[in-house]
Simulated assay, not measured.
Amino acid sequence: MEIGLGLPISDPACLLEWARRAEECGFGTVAMLDRLAFDNPEPLTALAVLAGATTRIRLQTEVLLGPLRGTALLAKQVATLDRMSGGRFVLGIGIGGREDDHAVAGTPINQRGRMLDKQFGALREIWRGEPYRGAIIGPRLEKAPRILIGGFAPAALKRVAAHADGFICAAPASWAGGLINTVREQWAEAGRAGRPRIVCQVNVAAGPPETIERARRAVAGYYAFTAREGWGEPLSDPGRIAAAVAEYRELGADEVVMYCYGDDPGQVERLAAIVGSIE
């Protein structure tokens, strides 16, 4: 099982150091979340910069909100990033559930699922070099980037077998198993070869009390829209972090991405040590 790092969003300038350290410490992926009506860096732009600062590590969105973006421009941005990074980009994508994001983008939130479904076929056609609305978009891709779909609703889970290469499960291990099993069953029922890639997420904070407190405040601000106190609370005890990663491994996850909302880059080495202690 591979381990990735979800990068903090509070200070875009520090992300170069995070990505370089993550690659040096052997992490498989650096990932970035996506919001529009929030103080966070735009993930495709940020990952493009990080692609130039690294050589091996994968670059992943978790998850990009597809309906907020025009299909042709999204196809071009993804293809450019994938080509310039040497095929290291992974498109984690979903519909988004925050009303303010869709209001700012001018997209009807009650149609976001249908909009995303239409995007999937168009993206692959564009990447193959086929005309889209009478025009060739480019750059053409010999191989489409891996697509992972994130979500919880039944419709989101069904999209994995229909359109994607795998599933991003941003759920605690205690109830992730049911979601993962559903995705695998639907994959088999659809007659898909092999098995879906499973990527799980866990919020973490490692280090001194001030680092953990900054992470808690950042997580609380990000999830304030839920009005649920403690939602997304990061794990900070090394033993609990190691146990959570081990639980996802038992569920058959191919990768666990540890999301860091605190901006202290020293967490990279601390988390690498914790991961290294897992038997």
Rank of each mutant, 00 (worst) to 15 (best):
A46S: 15
C169E: 05
V160I: 14
F38E: 12
A215N: 04
L91S: 04
E142V: 04
T55N: 03
G178K: 14
A206C: 14
F152G: 02
R146Y: 01
A246F: 02
G177E: 12
P154W: 02
G52H: 08
R159K: 10
R58V: 02
A173E: 02
I241S: 08
V30G: 04
L59Q: 00
R240P: 00
G52E: 00
G96Q: 09
A22H: 13
A218N: 15
E233A: 15
P41I: 02
F27T: 08
A246M: 01
I95R: 07
R88V: 04
L74N: 12
V160G: 03
V275M: 04
D264K: 05
A190Y: 07
R112N: 11
M1F: 12
S85L: 05
L15W: 10
T55V: 00
P172G: 07
F120A: 11
E250W: 00
W231R: 11
G52W: 10
P209Y: 10
S85N: 02
I147H: 03
R197G: 09
E99K: 15
V257F: 04
G239Q: 12
G134K: 06
W187N: 01
G92Q: 08
T182L: 06
T226A: 13
L47N: 07
R83W: 03
F152W: 04
T54C: 09
P139I: 05
L68E: 09
G4P: 08
L73V: 14
M32N: 08
A37C: 10
G96D: 14
A153N: 11
L36N: 02
R98D: 09
I3T: 13
A37L: 03
D254E: 11
D11R: 14
C200M: 03
E2R: 14
I95A: 12
Q111K: 14
P12H: 11
G92D: 09
E99W: 07
V49L: 13
P234T: 12
E229Q: 14
R20Q: 15
L64I: 11
D165C: 06
I180T: 04
L68Q: 03
M84K: 01
G87C: 09
L271P: 05
D263I: 05
A161E: 09
G66H: 01
P139N: 04
I93L: 06
I57E: 13
L116Y: 03
A103N: 05
P145C: 05
T55Q: 14
Y248Q: 00
R192V: 09
R21I: 00
P196T: 02
L141V: 10
A105E: 05
G239T: 10
Q186A: 00
A170L: 07
G232S: 10
D117L: 03
I241L: 13
G138S: 13
E189W: 01
R124I: 07
A244H: 03
D237M: 07
V204W: 13
R124W: 05
A205T: 12
P108E: 01
F120S: 08
G94C: 03
A19D: 02
L44D: 10
G191C: 01
V160T: 09
G151R: 00
P43F: 03
R216V: 14
T55M: 00
R133L: 15
V202C: 12
G232H: 09
A206H: 06
G252S: 07
G86N: 08
A253T: 10
A22C: 13
A103R: 15
I126P: 01
L59N: 04
